[in-house]
Design a protein around this nucleic acid. Structure first.
Lengths: 197, 197
DNA sequence: GGAAAACGTTAACAAAAGCTAAGGAATTGG
DNA sequence: CCAATTCCTTAGCTTTTGTTAACGTTTTCC
């Protein structure tokens, strides 16, 4: 099955007649390392399914500092929800961490399908709800746990792909600490693990 | 117009025929100060519109410590999305900060309306999307700003209701710091403001 | 293959936050 | 209206994080 159709199928089933118009609007695209799919302060009216590779979502602060807040791997759908919904410039960038293959399509097409096919509207609801649960959990983790506890939670989570495939400085940002601090936390955790062995 | 109908109307218009079945399922309820609408570790299968009063969303940690992560005032819809969607026990409580009037209804009713009326499915999508934008912004703020900057951002935001109506210890939790630390931050910020006057 | 860039660790110091405790002000609720 | 509770601030001390910088390793990509 087409990768995007398979992605949608995890939420709702699509008939051929429902799938065809979306399929017609898809453009494949590749990104080199460090190339942007979304660029901060520019409108980003497309969504993309990652077919292979990896990307990070980052905010560039007024002082030039970058903060990475999210990662996307194979079979993740990504884009600037906020820019697509409001039409305003995106508040963040999405940048390839390695060579990446995408399937892109305009959000406007999806919006048209919301009107035309109830099944897409349902997909849209379930997708937003699914992301909301994830973001809420992330927010709770940031407010409930210390940096060290967040690192340990990541170690024990099902997101270890992040630790394996993402440079540590970006993981630090994702956990809400500086790279230096994460390095210290790791040394501390390792020492604790040695002790309890 | 009925307060709940008015709330929904900000997203989609409802005909009488669409509104009637939801209206039939509404139960008014009042909470005393410190009384729970949702209790952690128990299923919470109802949603509620706050008609008057105020509530906080809080997590109680294994060590007994509480962390407040959200507030609800008049015309806010609240509930445990996660518990409603999955049927699992809620991971947090929702507790009244002051005497509060609610209009409650079962999530199962809304789910039935999703199937029956496309307009409700659209409402569900828009509601989830709206909350997602808010949660994303909150997450970015936590990862991008220092505690002091977060306090200043709150001061300058359109959420000053929080500062006016919520005990400061809960605001501290919401900002991701201890009450003692927020008190120090306030002293610091005030000193800076005096200096620049 | 090799130069350049990116990356992780460590150290030393400064700044900020956490913790505990105590005192006094404000709010609540009968 | 008054007693009990809740709440905010301040202080002293400890722990953690941020910052800057230096060094060695790894990765990237001509």
């Amino acid at each position: 099955m087409h990768p995007l159709r398979a992605y949608i199928h995890r939420f709702v089933p699509l008939t051929e007649a429902e799938w065809a118009p979306l399929a017609a609007g898809i453009t494949p695209r590749t990104l080199r390392r460090k190339q942007n799919f979304v660029t901060q302060d520019q409108p980003a009216l497309e969504l993309a399914l990652v077919v292979s590779g990896a990307c990070r979502l980052l905010y560039t602060r007024p002082d030039g500092e970058e903060r990475t807040t999210y990662f996307f791997f194979e079979n993740h759908l990504m884009g600037s929800y906020q820019s697509c919904l409001t039409g305003q410039p995106s508040q963040f960038s999405i940048q390839a961490l390695a060579p990446t293959e995408l399937l892109t399509f305009p959000y406007a097409l999806l919006r048209r399908l919301f009107d035309e096919f109830p099944v897409y509207e349902r997909f849209g609801r379930l997708l937003a709800e699914y992301h909301l649960l994830g973001t809420d959990a992330r927010l709770a983790e940031l407010l409930l746990l210390s940096p060290e506890q967040r690192y340990q939670a990541l170690l024990r989570s099902h997101k270890t792909k992040i630790l394996e495939r993402v440079p540590q400085q970006y993981v630090a940002s994702y956990l809400g600490v500086t790279p230096v601090s994460l390095s210290r936390i790791r040394a501390r955790v390792q020492a604790e693990d040695e002790g309890s062995r």
